[in-house]
Nucleic acid binder design. Structure first.
Length: 287
DNA sequence: AAGAGGCCCTGATAGC
DNA sequence: TGCTATCAGGGCCTCT
């Protein structure tokens, strides 16, 4: 599901739902994610108030009262569900658990509030929960990651200098979170198409003009994707169960064999593999 | 340091 | 119908 826009959509609905609410109980149904869910998770949540739900890159940040944080990463297949409770008294009641909106398998964590609960589900188990004890550790946690595309520091100077002497292809760098944080495999292809840059092109060969295009179009694509509610390929839905709409705006992603959408171009979209990930582009438009 | 490649998982779909 | 192979939105690790 989750590149920056999809995580942002989840953040928005989650924030709206749980800000200033007190956590009643946390149930870890299955602690087996990419990293084991910390045993202390419940202690950090129970009887604490959620100050707000933030985000950096593809990480959700739950701000807890008394100054600690919980990071949630959705990996490839993590989803967050809001389940309303009809029987307020018994919080582990099975009728509550068997809500029709909830997947039957792979529900790992339940965070229970007064009249509803949020459930983390992750079939592939690439996601994780992480406790951060204070502000200082939170900053340390992200310091090795590159800026988000929206960051003021993601500018021509940064990008052009970063690419100096880098012989790897540009597509790989868009996926490299140490260069820029939040772009994933869908939006990398879309950004390069919009920028008319071939995904194979070596980063060190990009002109300043091309670097500017990448900076501009990264912001443009991600903002638009957020506006459209993210991309719903497979079954991504936000926590209220509605689908995103950006999948209808894909110019190249999953468009192999389709005619290029640029006016006047009659070439077909190609699919190639770069660093083990599908990459879609137009060989005529992208040089 | 930079780059290539493998690995962690389950489930949906395609092909035989 | 039922098997096997391939592929999926991420990120970490090791080896050269």
């Amino acid at each position: 599901m989750p590149e920056l826009p999809e995580v942002e959509i989840v953040r928005q609905s989650l924030h709206k739902k749980i800000k200033q609410k007190k956590v009643k109980k946390v149930i870890v149904r299955n602690n087996n994610l990419r990293f084991k869910i910390p045993n202390a998770l419940s202690n950090y949540f129970e009887n604490k108030k959620i100050i707000k739900v933030g985000r950096f890159s593809k990480y959700l940040i739950i701000y807890l009262s008394q100054g600690s944080y919980c990071l949630i990463h959705l990996g490839m297949s993590g989803t967050v569900h809001i389940v309303e409770n009809k029987t307020i008294n018994n919080i582990t009641n099975t009728s509550f658990y068997n809500s029709p909106s909830l997947p039957k398998k792979h529900n790992h964590v339940e965070i229970i509030f007064d009249h509803f609960k949020i459930v983390y589900n992750d079939p592939r188990r690439f996601g994780f929960f992480e406790i951060i004890k204070n502000r200082e550790d939170l900053e340390k946690r992200f310091c090795h990651l590159g800026p988000e595309p929206f960051d003021i520091n993601f500018d021509l100077n940064y990008v052009y200098n970063f690419f100096k002497g880098k012989k790897k292809d540009i597509k790989s760098f868009l996926l490299d979170q140490k260069f820029v944080s939040g772009i994933g495999n869908i939006y990398a292809s879309e950004i390069l198409f919009l920028s008319k840059i071939n995904p194979y092109k070596k980063a060190c060969l990009l002109t300043k003009k091309e670097c500017k295009k990448i900076i501009f179009n990264s912001k443009k694509i991600l903002s638009k994707a957020i506006d459209k509610g993210g991309s719903s390929i497979r079954d991504f839905k936000n926590t209220s169960g509605s689908k995103g709409g950006f999948q209808n705006e894909f110019k190249v992603y999953q468009q192999e064999g389709q005619r290029c959408k640029k006016l006047g171009c009659s070439d077909l979209i190609k699919k190639i593999i770069i660093s083990n990930r599908s990459t879609f582009f137009c060989n005529s438009c992208q040089k």
